[in-house]
Design a protein around this nucleic acid. Structure first.
Length: 412
RNA sequence: GCUGGGGUAGUGAAGUGGUUAAACACGGCAGACUGUAAAUCUGCUCCCUCUGGGUUCGGGGGUUCGAAUCCCUCCCCCAGCA
């Protein structure tokens, strides 16, 4: 049996009001991750407009990339010593499996991801099968690149093999994320498929781990689906946490496809009550403050989301008093920094809203790049700091007070 | 002064006798964004009492059933020649 250079320690006292909530430390070959933590998304192996030095300067702990997007470069990354070294981030890394793309390039193509239960069970909202860039069957997913027309058949085995080549500290099992409009019956079938894919992925993981004995151990998280159906969520939690092949099981869990905002707490509670306490859980794809609070309270340890980086580029700025759109004309002559209390390098350097707005709206590409960098630093720092403060509040026992104070200002 | 080209939304422009002029692009204003087909996407952008109605193609006049479009004249811009 191979030594697993991966572990999770809970460092917070138990909390009666939130029995599932915890602060902890995830140990990886590239360093410890203090949780709760926001993992910054760098799909293609680097965070857009946030180079490694900036990542470090704002206290980011993890970069999360994607095995699907890095598929063609996996061999090069492997030869360069793995994702952490290749990207020059040199810290802990996660990779996603490509499972999200089953939905984003498939049934939900071209649409904003719906989190509205009004769209639930309404199959008319689904993309027509022949228009999709991702076609699912039991074997795997056929991805079509719209630019090159290249076709890749992604299977659980290929996803895991690719993620092993990329060499992130934590990998995700290949799952099928369903659309909120998919029917219950479809979700039953998709969940069973995801369960079989998890098992195939775990087998491949064992094989790859033994093949790459000289490399640092890469943890594999099993991903749970089930849409907003609590019975399916419970089944997923049992199936994935009980999965065991020759003594091998999952090192942690990815909570996937949690799109229904109205139902978030119930979905997460249902899963985390069943999952073993001593393994870390990653809540896939969410980062709005209210989602993080709910996630933390119901037992999630790490988070990731494209929103802080994408919204920064689009001029949506996070502050303690809520968000604002920097592109609005009212900020044209606003000499204040983005957020008076912010400790990010952008705010500390005194960049004003007026200046940043001008850069963002400039016709010069180099000005855009400057604005994107400064704004991404700010937004990501906001979410990273939120997680740091939540962690401290959990450990020191004032979580509820912290949450109330934050909530009253942010959602006033 | 002469010759030629041209004046159409904030800007650049399509339209060159006949469906309701203003397509398209940029700019402007607002919105969206949750495991990144995203430095993206959507809407609005002449005026009004706005589910409708009205005014406009540099100014004036003319030809015609009908003119941004043809003619005359004036003004302005650009190029060349004096």
């Amino acid at each position: 049996m191979i030594e697993r250079d991966f572990g999770f320690d809970i460092v917070s006292p138990t909390n009666g009001k939130y029995p599932l909530m915890r602060a902890g430390i995830i140990h990886t070959p590239h360093g410890d991750i203090r949780t709760p933590n926001f993992n910054v998304v760098g799909t293609h192996g680097q965070v857009k407009f946030l180079p490694p030095a900036d990542m470090h300067s704002i206290g980011a702990q993890v970069m999360l990339s994607n095995g699907y997007h890095l598929f063609r470069r996996a061999t090069v990354i492997s030869a360069s010593g793995g994702l952490a070294k290749w990207s020059d981030w040199n810290g802990p890394t996660f990779t996603d499996s490509g499972g999200f793309q089953v939905m984003s390039l498939g049934s939900g193509l071209g649409k904003v991801i719906s989190v509205d239960l009004a769209d639930a069970d309404d199959e008319s909202k689904l993309r027509e099968p022949d228009e999709r860039l991702a076609q699912v069957d039991d074997e795997g997913v056929l991805f079509r690149d719209p630019y090159s027309s290249r076709i890749i058949k992604f299977t659980p085995e290929l996803s895991i093999e690719t993620q092993h080549k990329i060499g992130a500290d934590v990998m995700m099992s290949f799952d099928e994320l369903t659309n909120i409009s998919d029917s219950y019956d479809y979700n039953v079938r998709a969940l069973e498929r995801t369960r079989r894919w998890a098992e195939r992925g775990l087998r491949e993981h064992i094989r790859q781990t033994e093949l790459r004995k000289n490399r640092p151990y890469q943890a594999l998280y099993g991903v749970l689906q089930g849409s907003y159906y609590l019975d399916l969520r419970a089944k997923a939690a049992r199936d994935i946490s009980e999965m065991n092949i020759n003594g091998w099981d999952f090192d942690g869990f990815g909570l996937g496809g949690v799109l229904a905002k109205d139902n978030l707490a119930d979905i997460l509670t249902t899963m985390c009550e069943i999952l073993p306490v001593n393994k870390p859980r990653h809540l896939l794809g969410l980062s709005h403050p209210d989602d993080i609070f709910v996630g933390v309270e119901t037992g999630s340890d790490t988070f990731d989301c494209v929103a802080p980086t994408r919204e920064a580029r689009h001029g949506r700025i996070y502050t303690m008093d809520g968000n604002f759109n920097l592109k609005k004309s009212e900020f044209k002559d606003d000499e204040r920094v983005l957020d008076a209390e912010c400790d990010c390098p952008t705010c500390r350097a005194g960049h004003s809203r007026a200046e940043l707005r001008a850069l963002l709206k400039s016709s010069e590409l180099s000005d855009h790049a400057m604005a994107y960098n400064l704004l991404t630093i700010h937004n990501v720092r906001f979410i990273v700091r939120l997680c740091e403060q939540i962690r401290q509040a959990i450990i020191d026992g004032y979580y509820d007070e912290y949450k109330q104070a934050f909530w009253q200002r942010y959602y006033k």
